[in-house]
């Protein structure tokens, strides 16, 4: 079939099938539970099972779509282009742009140092560089999917905007205080080779192919965490009585947010690994603000990252960086606990 040879056609077909699957998912999972398996509705096990076989395909559908879209968008960006865009941008506007670029620029955490050196070498102020480096891990497409799946759009949007706000203000503050003196001296002597950017024009088909590769890579790595997370969530969904939950939820102490961050910083995990824990925390009655603060501190601030940064930053700047980001997360934790 010639029609299926073009990725663009496959993409359209995929979107139609995706939409159909997504809209009939609820009827389909009910059909399996009530008609095929003929389970007695209303029982704890039935409802937990219903939740599980509805949530698993739902989260996977969202995961595939969002990673695909982000994967395609990322083919339009590269660390080199981002560097060019940020060159010579004034503070604050530069911070805003850096935070947004942090979401769409493809790079893995192990490239943080070469990226940092490349940015500094290009004359990008450290404040703007920091906005980029804070936003990149903090706002993560997998976290976005799982938050949509488990808590809905509202919480997800709050997560994205508060994450951006932390990245922008933290970087901006680091810039305002002119903390360049706390960067290791050798950093400023690094000469980057002239970058012959491979200006290869890639076709849209190639972009789609790269998006599909991203889906395979990421879903292949994290599916087990997601199934486990939802299994635990659905267990709690069916079995934990509601008044038990609400009793626990009443116990939001003032120190819960800072405590969550203190526990979260030394831990290191990617978003996929942390979300099942977050869903359990929330099922167990931890408030959304506290749980999100915990998640952000695990994926946005981590001990291994700090140790890597030690190569290029003096300890004072690392401390300032950690404290500013931690304060930002605390504020957001309290804010969300206050709203919900």
């Amino acid at each position: 079939m010639n029609f299926l040879k073009k990725p663009i056609n496959i993409l359209c077909l995929f979107l139609i099938i995706w939409f159909l699957c997504y809209s009939y998912l609820s009827s389909f999972s009910n059909f399996i539970v009530d008609t095929i398996l003929n389970l007695e509705s209303g029982r704890h096990f039935t409802e937990a099972f219903r939740f599980f076989i509805f949530e698993v395909p739902k989260v996977f559908l969202l995961l595939i779509l969002i990673i695909l879209v982000v994967g395609i968008i990322r083919t339009y960006f590269s660390a080199e282009k981002t560097k060019e865009i940020l060159k010579g941008k004034p503070l604050f506007i530069g911070n805003i742009m850096a935070a947004f670029l942090g979401i769409v620029t493809p790079f893995c955490s192990c490239s943080a140092i070469p990226l940092f050196l490349g940015f500094i070498e290009a004359g990008i102020p450290i404040g703007i560089t920091f906005s980029f480096l804070i936003a990149a891990p903090m706002i993560n497409e997998v976290a976005i999917v799982l938050l949509i799946g488990l808590f809905g759009w509202e919480v997800t949007l709050i997560y994205i905007f508060t994450g951006l706000a932390i990245a922008i203000t933290s970087g901006w503050l680091i810039g305002v205080f002119k903390l360049e003196k706390y960067v290791e001296d050798w950093v400023f002597q690094v000469k980057s080779g002239s970058i012959l950017d491979d200006n290869q024009k890639i076709s849209f088909n190639e972009r789609i192919a790269q998006g599909i590769t991203a889906v395979k890579d990421i879903v292949g790595k994290i599916w087990i965490y997601i199934v486990l997370g939802i299994a635990v969530g659905s267990g709690a969904h069916g079995y934990v009585p509601e008044d038990f939950l609400s009793n626990l939820m009443g116990k939001a102490h003032w120190y819960s947010v800072p405590l969550a961050i203190l526990i979260g910083v030394p831990l290191y995990s990617n978003a996929a690994g942390i979300i099942p824990i977050v869903s359990v925390l929330i099922e167990k009655g931890v408030t959304i603000g506290t749980a999100l603060a915990f998640m952000m501190s695990v994926i946005g601030l981590s001990l291994p990252e700090v140790i890597i940064l030690k190569k290029v930053l003096k300890i004072q700047l690392i401390a300032i960086f950690v404290v500013i980001v931690a304060i930002g997360i605390i504020i957001i934790g309290y804010l969300l606990n206050f709203i919900y």
Partner: peptide, 13 residues
């Protein structure tokens, strides 16, 4: 060596 890597003009490994 990260310094060398950057000298090659590479920012993402």
């Amino acid at each position: 060596d990260i310094q060398k890597i950057v000298e090659y003009g590479v920012m993402v490994t």
